[in-house]
């Protein structure tokens, strides 16, 4: 079958396109004689990793735990709340409009408040990441749980199936593709949320580091920080995609 070589072909193209971007970046900087403090070359950017003061590993660990922590919390609470909504219609009617309004709050604006309430640290940044990426998960999960063919419900009803059977055998597996589509959107938002938190107030993390090196105009280190943040995001996204491949039949996946 051509399936395997087709996949290989796609991976190769993905790697090449990334490499081409680095080459273009390199050519732009060297041919355009761009000053280092405006835009460092790829080599200079990687070189920034050698500055021990920047404590790359520690900062990366902090940022990663904020992103993953906020994301995990959002998935748990989001999916859990959507399940409650599908079991208790009145709860959904009470809370959903409220959630829609609350979601319109620019979460960045809550940052200073979070710091007043909870001070600096990983915890508050997890909260900010959570608040940004939680809503899409609730919304898509609730949607997925409510998308059940009425005829299929009739079929279960003629067999006197219980509500729990409907939930575990039909609703939840049917909602999985929707849950993953929300989780993919949320993965991107979680990264943004954690960095916003670090910008607003923190003493560790890659976002914090960026603010520090901004003062000394070490643009190479700022570039490196952005690249590392992106890589954490890519790993998170990759994990979600992998889990989706494992749990959702190909035909049912929503991109």
């Amino acid at each position: 079958m051509s399936g395997k070589s087709d996949a290989l072909h796609r991976y190769a193209l993905a790697v090449i396109s990334h490499l081409l971007l680095v080459v273009a970046w390199h050519l732009f900087v060297t041919l355009g004689k761009v000053p280092k403090f405006v835009m460092p070359s790829p080599y200079e950017t990687v070189h920034a990793l050698l500055v021990p003061n920047y404590r790359w590993l520690d900062n990366m660990a902090v940022t990663a735990s904020e992103i993953f922590g906020g994301y995990a919390l959002a998935v748990t609470v989001g999916v859990g709340l959507a399940m409650l909504f599908s079991w208790f219609r009145w709860l959904e009617m009470w809370l959903m409009p409220l959630l829609v309004s609350l979601n319109m709050i620019p979460k960045v604006a809550l940052g200073p408040l979070v710091i007043v309430w909870f001070s600096y640290g990983i915890g508050p940044n997890i909260l900010i990441a959570f608040s940004i990426c939680f809503f899409p998960i609730v919304l898509t999960t609730a949607r997925g749980l409510s998308e059940v063919e009425p005829d299929l419900l009739d079929l279960v009803r003629t067999l006197r199936g219980s509500r729990w059977q409907i939930f575990t055998k039909i609703q939840l597996p049917g909602a999985l593709p929707y849950i993953f589509s929300g989780m993919k959107v949320a993965a991107v938002l979680a990264v943004a949320g954690a960095i916003v938190g670090e910008f607003l107030g923190s003493e560790k993390g890659l976002g914090y580091l960026m603010l520090q090196v901004q003062v000394t105009l070490d643009t190479a280190a700022m570039f490196m920080a952005v690249i590392l943040i992106t890589m954490i995001g890519v790993v998170l996204y990759g994990l979600v995609l992998g889990l989706e491949r494992l749990l959702v039949v190909r035909d049912a996946r929503i991109s």
Binding site: E149, D151, L152, D154, L155, T158, G174, V249
Partner: peptide, 17 residues
């Protein structure tokens, strides 16, 4: 009535997963 009815609809309504 709880177990002597089989149903077939216009759509197959098979569970995709």
């Amino acid at each position: 009535p709880a177990r002597d009815i089989g149903m077939v609809f216009q759509q197959p309504l098979l569970l995709k997963w």
